[in-house]
Amino acid sequence: MTALVVENLSLSVPSRQILRDVSLRVQVGEVVGVVGESGSGKSTTARAVLGLQPDDATVSGEISVCGHDVVHACPAVLQEVRARQAAMIFQEPRRVLNPVRRIGDSACERLVRVHGASKSAATAEVSALLAEVGLSDQVLRRYPHELSGGMLQRVVIAAALSTGPRLLLADEATSALDVTTQAEVLAVLRGLQREREMSVLFITHDLHLAGAYCDRVYVMKDGAVVDHQEASTIFVNPDNPYTRQLAEAVPQLPTREVRHA
């Protein structure tokens, strides 16, 4: 079964069309990148996968998450998809976590509220996941402002994975972090993803990051998919003119001299 199928997805709000005929697929255990600039529709696509389109939007096309039809789903199915099949993480963990609640309360909330787990079972599950992302369960008693951005993003990953989703939607999840912290968080995420055979839709504005981290990459522009290729080819002069333009806009570091010790 394919983890995510989006077929000819179009989405418009009364003032304008946001997505045109977007089609993409994520196989089980695959990390697929969606790259585009702001306004390209990449975030809207991810949100539509969870049925989170704007209230006044009209949607056509098909979205299926692990075989569940999302576009025509009744609220109960949508709830099931959001609760068990797919989870989403965002750029700013501080906006997702309630600043006045302890990390533990926020992180266990999904398991307790949606899955009906007991508080202690949820805490045990989240603690185990925190250990996997390299954090001690001490953080459960801390408040968001006491943690760094990288630590918080790992907490959010642990909380998102606590319900065992098959598909993770990562919307600019590491864009606010500096390069070294970004690498640490992504290393953790890759470990968990391989171990659980989870699929990831990795949304980013950073073409090089997508090229280095993902298996395949879709490039979006003005609400449509304009390019689709194996990630590794991103770095070797892409054929598509828009992808090439994006690649050239990325500031380059001068080539380093090899140091002789």
């Binding site: 989170l52 959001r82 926020s106 959010v156 998102a160």
Partner: peptide, 8 residues
């Protein structure tokens, strides 16, 4: 946590 429900 991650988006699930409309604000209660």
């Amino acid at each position: 946590m991650t988006v699930l429900l409309r604000p209660a």
